[in-house]
């Protein structure tokens, strides 16, 4: 069973090298420079990260964009370009669609967003000719908590999921947990209180999910509603009269909505110094979304996760 980020990287390295396709269009051609200060979402950082993953033996990159420009870029970054396949394409949307087509044709195993606009990229993925598996996408963030991997969902895609969407979000997280070798996933369905309160809809959803798992409708142990202290600590749970398997042992925190999930994930990064990564779930082939505030390390991990899920 994979317990930490190192295990993820090592397991991915043991797999066969995968072909990863990435649109590589310079979106900032017309502006003065890429907004490097906004994180690592600039082309230079992304290309470097992709090459790091290639050097680690995880992937063979295939870049779609203007051939001459990409070659120059690689040379200026002192990256050897002869190993990198480049496919000529000038427009962003065409490059994304071409990349998706390559996955369909079996010419590539996984797709990375790169620096294309997330919104447009996701709608191309969601298109009927895109890469959807069950017409439902969700995002799982990941960090190391003491001796295990902790999954947080949905931290990016779904804003205010209703019960049926929460079921799908839970199922996607179970699928990812299985990739890590977790046999019976433990999910804490979080809310602001551990009692069912009809005025707080998340408590009702959590209780239903919990009951569904009890009846075998969800293939995991779902406990809820749990507030975060009961979910994090057996002692705290016990003081609240909750005697269950999930407190302190949860593999997944299932959040009530995007407001709680997104802020939680950012608090962990900025205030608690946690290293995070994540992955998009619900596609036929792995898609690396490299969202917003990823660091080079988190992006390499995201690629490794993609390789594991091929």
């Amino acid at each position: 069973m994979m317990m930490n980020f190192e295990d993820i990287i090592n397991s991915a390295k043991n797999r066969e090298r995968k072909r990863m396709v990435m649109p590589c269009i310079d979106l900032y051609r017309s502006s003065i420079s890429a907004p490097e200060d906004q994180g690592y979402s600039d082309e230079k950082s992304i290309l470097k990260t992709v090459m790091t993953a290639a050097e680690a033996g995880l992937i063979e990159p295939i870049l779609i964009g203007e051939e001459r420009r990409i070659k120059e870029k690689l040379v200026s970054l002192e990256i050897l370009e002869e190993k990198t396949e480049i496919i000529g394409e000038k427009e962003e949307i065409k490059a994304v669609n071409r990349a998706i087509q390559m996955i369909h044709d079996g010419d590539a195993d996984l797709l990375m967003r790169g620096m294309t606009k997330t919104r447009g990229f996701l709608s191309a993925i969601s298109d009927k000719d895109g890469l959807m598996k069950n017409n439902f996408l969700s995002y799982v963030s990941l960090f190391e908590l003491k001796d295990r991997l902790m999954l947080l969902t949905d931290t990016y895609i779904n804003d205010f999921p209703d019960l049926s969407r929460k079921i799908a979000i839970a199922e996607n997280s179970i699928e990812l947990a299985e990739t890590f070798g977790i046999k019976k996933t433990k999910i804490a369905a979080l809310s602001s209180i551990e009692y069912v309160n009809p005025a707080i809809p998340s408590t009702v959803d959590a209780a239903v999910l919990s009951k569904m798992s009890e009846r075998g409708q969800i293939d995991a142990v779902v406990e809820g509603p749990l507030d975060i202290d009961a979910a994090s600590s057996k002692i705290a749970a016990k003081r609240k009269g909750i005697d269950a398997a999930v407190p302190e042992e949860a593999n997944v925190f299932l959040f009530p909505d995007i407001e709680s999930a997104y802020a939680f994930y950012q608090f962990l990064i900025f205030l608690f110094g946690a290293e995070m990564t994540g992955t998009l779930m619900g596609t036929r082939s792995p898609v690396i979304l490299n969202v917003g505030i990823g660091t080079p390390k988190s992006m390499v991990l995201e690629i490794a996760l993609g390789v594991l899920r091929c």
Partner: peptide
């Protein structure tokens, strides 16, 4: 909202 407040 309350859920976000309490969890954070």
């Amino acid at each position: 909202n309350l859920d976000a407040g309490n969890i954070l």
